[in-house]
């Protein structure tokens, strides 16, 4: 038994080494840089202790960006899961053209987020955008879809949800197809209606898929970057920035690499603090079958 455990341990070493190299080293370096005042390229760095962290908690834009990141994380998760589960339930039924619909709904994922943002920009553009042209057909005045930070954030969140909804759809579809029919059959024989079957049989058995979808969507939403770059450029007034984008701007444009690293470290812990309890909460609701 001991020998087997040692063998298992040996097998994990390559993965641990890779993780240490590509996650551990940058993380430690990021924490180190966060303690310095540095412009990101000079050979001179000045140690300032936790000043960058103190500054982050006094920075209004940091909190606004943190708020946006929560909208991206939770908003995208909510939208993607509702849409993904609905389409998965629909596509789990047998009908003609089902495979074609599955492929079409999955297609947006294959495009890079940046290109998707560029395409959607032409839809939400104030002057001559597709949506406003369509509103014009009905005599409705053009809408400035991205006029404020909040509006722009919501537009980016919806764009992201639409693009990656297919991931949820596939996860739920796989989960649904993994549930043996006999459980639903038994419930129906006991007199359960379709909603009751869904709520008391299908949904609990889908918890493993829900865990994967929620955690993936949350992390994906928190890391949102490319769609925002292409769609709003983080504007107006840096009002639709995510933390990832804010870090990039601070580091490379504003030349505040130390502060950017401090924001990065905070972001790491925020994601950790949010995703671990959610994961645990959902795991407790997992049903064995």
């Amino acid at each position: 038994m001991k020998k087997k455990r040692r063998q298992y341990l040996m097998l994990t070493i390559p993965a641990i080494l890779l993780l240490a190299l590509f996650l551990g080293v940058p993380l430690v370096n990021g924490i180190r840089v966060s303690l310095y005042k540095w412009n990101g390229y000079s050979q001179n760095m000045r140690f300032i202790g936790i000043e960058n962290f103190v500054k982050a908690f006094q920075d209004k834009l940091f909190f606004k960006t943190l708020g946006n990141t929560m909208i991206y994380g939770f908003g995208s998760t909510l939208f993607q899961n509702i849409l993904g589960l609905s389409t998965a339930l629909l596509l789990n039924q047998k009908f003609k053209g089902r495979n074609a619909v599955r492929a079409i709904l999955y297609m947006p994922i294959m495009i890079s987020g940046f290109i998707m943002g560029q395409i959607l920009y032409f839809f939400v553009q104030m002057d001559g955008g597709v949506f406003n042209e369509m509103l014009g057909w009905f005599g409705i005045a053009p809408v400035y879809w991205t006029e404020t930070g909040l509006k722009a954030t919501i537009v980016c969140m919806i764009a992201n949800s639409w693009q990656y909804m297919g991931i949820c759809m596939i996860l739920y579809l796989a989960g649904l197809q993994g549930i043996p029919d006999m459980y639903r059959e038994a419930a129906r024989l006991d007199g359960a209606g379709p909603m009751q079957v869904f709520r008391h049989v299908t949904l609990p058995l889908l918890i493993p898929s829900i865990i994967s979808a929620v955690v993936l969507n949350l992390i994906g939403g928190f890391k949102m970057y490319d769609v925002i770059v292409a769609l709003t450029g983080g504007g107006p007034s840096r009002g639709s920035l995510s933390l990832s984008y804010y870090i990039q701007l601070l580091y490379f444009q504003d030349e505040k690499a130390g502060y950017a690293s401090a924001v990065g470290v905070i972001m790491f812990f925020v994601i950790l603090v949010i995703t671990i309890p959610i994961n645990e909460f959902l795991k407790r609701r997992e049903v064995e079958y």
């Binding site: 994922i109 890079s112 987020g113 990656y164 991931i167 596939i170 996860l171 796989a174 989960g175 197809q177 993994g178 493993p208 898929s209 994967s212 993936l216 992390i219 994906g220 890391k223 949102m224 970057y225 490319d226 770059v229 990832s244 984008y245 870090i247 990039q248 580091y251 490379f252």
Partner: peptide, 27 residues
């Protein structure tokens, strides 16, 4: 089916990770 679901989930994780790279990594 469970194995298939796991493989699909793993594929999704990889594709999401590929889509979610930040500017720092890109540069």
């Amino acid at each position: 089916k469970k194995v298939l679901a796991l493989i699909l989930a793993a594929l999704m994780i990889l594709s999401l990770a590929a889509c979610g790279g930040n500017g720092g990594n890109e540069s």
